Computed example of a mutant assay.
Amino acid sequence: MDLSKFKLKSPFAKKKKAKNVAGLDIGSFEVKLTVLHSDEKGNVSLVKAGKRPLPHGTIVDKDVRDREGLIFALQSLVDEVAPDITEVAFSLSGHKVLVDRVEIRTPTGKGKPEEQIRESIMVEAEQRIPTGIDSVQLDYFELGQGKDEKHIQAMLVAARNELVEDYVGIIMDSGVVPILIDLDSIALYNLFEFNHDIPQEGCIALVDIGHSLSNAAFILDGRLFSIRDISNAARGVWDRLQTELHLSSDDLAELMLGEVPMDESPTIRKAVNNASEDLGIGMSMAFSYLENMTGGTKVQKVFLSGGALGITFLVDALSNRLGIPCELIDSLGRIRFDQAVFGEMPIDFAKAVYAISIGLALRAREIV
């Protein structure tokens, strides 16, 4: 599926020739930056990557609580990783972003089909956005034919104006220009599409386990079908692990930052299995929602990303709980890279941590 035309409005977007593109993933726990290079033959290489933790409380439920602290973190990250970049793609998610699947009539008669579709989408948006369409940045993309040839299905995306303006202003004040605003789940889908062969039959789920929020994208019969937020995330797993393993706050922080590796003992396996309970429940609820929407379609495989995958045995624990095969998304399957870019970070952990930022950089390639 080509989602290249989908992006929320950014007044700074422009077309130009460039070889390097950057993706900026602003999470609640840390910020990540990756830079991709495209050569004249279309080969893509990851040339720079880095991350920086955020002080506790900087971002809460995707709302920025410490603006200056976030700006400082972004400036420091850019200066350390790629001081020469001037433009980035970034993404949004959370309760101030509305994502809804809509079905409209196929355009007929006079007029441009694109304009007729957009007018129909605006009518649907007015019915779904209580505060009105003037209060949001709105976009959509077509998903394909609806229940018959007379209908088209589309994904409607709307982000509150204050959320967009807040993040754009912070990124600008940190010294770089946002040229594309995406969604976490769409960036994840594009990452998967670039690096994997999408199965043309059945249903798979792509799930990024963030610190305070997880995002899921469902692919049905080769097409993006739906996306969902999952309120259960890494923070809950870590908190439960702290209780299960009797860890101090300092010990927990070292594990979360990857400064100390986790043991692969039976005790750790049992603790991780117990700690994954709420996350597994949240994912199961999202999968049940999909099943209800489709009249019985079940997820057959789950591809995971996110910093939480640094938790030993978590992938296995989720697979056992869900009763569905789970594996790590290969964020670099078709991207060249030198492992030295990640320093001492294990490559599988790097693939999980930088998944969204790599997906964003891949999207940025489409508009520069």
Rank of each mutant, 00 (worst) to 15 (best):
193 E>L: 13
289 Y>P: 00
328 L>Y: 07
291 E>C: 13
247 L>A: 07
348 D>Y: 15
208 D>S: 10
368 V>E: 09
260 V>I: 14
151 H>I: 10
156 L>Q: 06
350 A>L: 06
172 M>Q: 05
246 H>G: 01
297 T>Y: 14
285 M>T: 10
279 L>F: 06
263 D>F: 02
177 V>M: 10
125 A>W: 11
16 K>G: 11
196 H>I: 05
275 A>D: 02
218 F>K: 03
132 G>V: 02
367 I>K: 02
348 D>S: 08
91 S>G: 15
50 G>A: 06
30 E>A: 15
240 R>F: 02
274 N>R: 09
192 F>M: 08
302 V>W: 01
21 V>M: 14
233 A>E: 02
93 S>P: 08
13 A>R: 06
367 I>C: 07
136 V>E: 01
7 K>N: 01
13 A>W: 00
281 I>E: 04
19 K>T: 15
138 L>A: 01
40 E>F: 14
168 V>Q: 03
49 A>H: 05
112 K>G: 01
12 F>N: 09
329 I>W: 03
198 I>Q: 07
326 C>P: 05
198 I>W: 00
132 G>H: 11
17 K>Y: 12
30 E>W: 09
245 L>H: 10
288 S>N: 15
353 V>W: 08
96 K>T: 13
275 A>E: 04
126 E>M: 08
165 E>W: 08
150 K>H: 13
106 T>W: 10
136 V>R: 04
330 D>L: 06
62 K>I: 03
152 I>P: 00
144 G>E: 07
334 R>T: 09
108 T>C: 04
270 K>H: 11
367 I>E: 02
141 F>Q: 03
109 G>M: 09
140 Y>F: 15
358 I>W: 00
345 M>N: 09
263 D>N: 09
146 G>Y: 02
264 E>T: 08
355 A>N: 05
199 P>H: 10
52 R>A: 03
28 S>V: 12
196 H>C: 10
268 I>Q: 07
150 K>N: 15
79 D>C: 01
3 L>V: 15
163 L>M: 12
76 S>F: 13
55 P>R: 03
65 R>P: 01
222 G>S: 06
217 A>C: 06
5 K>D: 09
84 D>L: 11
214 S>G: 09
60 V>W: 12
314 L>Q: 04
292 N>K: 15
175 G>S: 03
86 T>F: 03
312 T>F: 08
303 F>N: 11
59 I>S: 00
79 D>I: 02
123 V>W: 15
299 V>P: 05
245 L>N: 13
53 P>V: 10
365 R>K: 15
264 E>W: 01
285 M>L: 12
331 S>E: 03
176 V>H: 01
41 K>C: 05
87 E>T: 07
33 L>W: 01
304 L>M: 14
215 N>W: 04
257 L>S: 13
270 K>G: 06
64 V>W: 04
22 A>F: 03
185 S>R: 07
168 V>T: 04
151 H>S: 14
24 L>M: 00
6 F>W: 05
264 E>R: 14
50 G>Q: 03
80 E>L: 07
211 H>W: 15
16 K>Q: 13
93 S>V: 05
285 M>K: 10
123 V>G: 12
163 L>E: 04
196 H>T: 06
76 S>V: 05
239 D>T: 15
187 A>N: 06
339 Q>G: 08
368 V>N: 07
51 K>H: 13
44 V>S: 03
122 M>R: 15
49 A>T: 05
363 R>T: 03
247 L>D: 02
221 D>S: 14
